[in-house]
Each structure stands twice: as structure tokens, then as C-alpha cells.
Amino acid sequence: MTVREFVDSATCYPGPTVRYRTEAVLRHQPPGIGMPRSITRYDKLLATFEELIAAISDVQEPMIAALCSSWESTKNGYEQAFRSGVTKSQIASGMEQGLRELPMLFHEIGGEHRARLLNVLHIAIAKNFPDFFKKDAALLASVVERNKIRNAREYYSVRHRIDELEGDESNIGERERLYKLVDQFES
């Protein structure tokens, strides 16, 4: 009996639609059958970093070369951490923080490469982890509304936005407000 035949012959139970009932039945199938497993935040971040590293590996800049060459050992470190009981969620938190810090690293690089690096970073995030921007936008909005940065996560979110605004003269007011928040937090 195929999975579809099993689903079609399954006894119906209360549920809003057949689709939901079908999904519930398929969830009880062995891995690889039926519905795909959900993509975790770790999976999205890993794909983002993989794409970013592949896209910037040709940049002739010492900091970028060091970043690219350390990526394989970083992934091996993640595997060792998993074996010792660290969860994907814990690793993802660190990866997310690293993703937020990259624009500041790129800021230290010469102008000719900086714009390309930021663009590649933005594309990799948008493709592999589009919710990253939504979460950051909501976090940034709450920080601006409160007019205070409370922790490192909020700080890096604000810094990331400042880096996005660099060179855009149409948003000078927003950038200045964000710089004031950063200055208050750092003092």
C-alpha cells in the first residue's frame, strides 16, 4: 500500500479540512516518506554562510581570506559541539550573532570591496533566511520606539541597520537617531 492509498483509506477524524487530516497522517510516516522535515534556523543559517563564503572567496582581502579559510574548521567545530550535546538552536544563536557582525567586519574593508560584500551578504540572507530581515525589522522597531538598546542582540541589530544606511543620504535622520542609541548603549 502506498502512502497516498494509506491516507485515502484512513479513518477521518475531526479537522478543518482534508489537507490537515492528510498532513497529520503523513507526519506519522517514517522519515523520507510524505512531508519533508522542517528546515531549522540552523539549516537556514548554514545555507546562508555556505553561499556567502562561496561568493566572496575570490575577494583579495586578508580579512576575507581568513574568514573563508576558517569556515571549514568552524563547521567541524559545530559537528563536535553537536556530539557533545550542544543543540542546533544554541549553535544557531551564535551563527545569527555572527551574521549580524559581518557588516561591521565588512565596514573595515576598502570601499571597492565593501559594497559588493554587503550586497552578497544581503542576497545570501534574502535567499536562505528571509525571516531574518522580518525579525530584525520588528526588533529594530521596538528598540526605536523604546528609544533604548537593552542588550547585545539589540545593539547588533541597530549596528546592522546603520551599516545598511551608510552612504544613503536620503536616510540621514534615521541613521543619526540610531547612532545616538548606539552611543547611549556604549557609554
Rank of each mutant, 00 (worst) to 15 (best):
M1P: 12
V3C: 10
R4D: 08
R4V: 12
A10H: 06
P16M: 14
Y20D: 01
Y20E: 02
R21D: 00
T22M: 09
E23V: 00
E23N: 08
A24C: 04
R27C: 06
H28A: 10
Q29W: 02
G32H: 06
I33Q: 14
M35G: 05
M35H: 02
I39W: 01
Y42V: 03
K44R: 15
L45T: 07
F49T: 01
F49I: 08
L52T: 01
I53S: 00
I56W: 04
V59F: 13
A65L: 11
A65K: 15
A66P: 00
L67A: 08
C68G: 04
S73W: 06
T74A: 08
K75H: 03
N76M: 12
N76Y: 09
G77A: 09
Y78L: 07
Y78G: 06
E79W: 02
Q80L: 15
A81P: 05
F82N: 02
R83M: 04
G85D: 12
T87S: 15
S89Y: 02
Q90R: 14
A92N: 01
A92V: 00
S93E: 10
G94S: 13
G94T: 08
M95G: 08
E96W: 08
Q97N: 11
L99Q: 05
L99A: 10
L102N: 07
L102Q: 01
M104L: 14
M104Q: 10
L105E: 04
H107N: 14
G110E: 11
H113F: 13
A115Y: 08
A115L: 13
A115W: 10
A115K: 15
R116F: 13
L117G: 03
I123R: 13
A124C: 13
I125R: 09
F129Q: 03
F129E: 00
P130H: 07
P130T: 02
P130M: 05
D131P: 03
D131E: 15
D131N: 08
F133T: 06
K135Q: 14
A137V: 07
A138W: 02
A138G: 12
V143C: 06
V144F: 04
E145T: 08
R146M: 09
N147F: 08
N147P: 05
N147E: 14
N147G: 05
I149C: 02
I149V: 14
R150P: 01
R150G: 03
R150D: 03
R150W: 07
A152I: 08
A152V: 09
E154W: 04
Y156S: 06
Y156C: 03
S157R: 03
R159T: 01
R159I: 05
H160F: 13
H160N: 09
D168A: 01
S170A: 15
I172K: 11
E174C: 01
E174S: 01
R175I: 02
R175T: 07
E176R: 01
E176T: 05
R177A: 03
F185T: 07
E186G: 02
S187V: 11
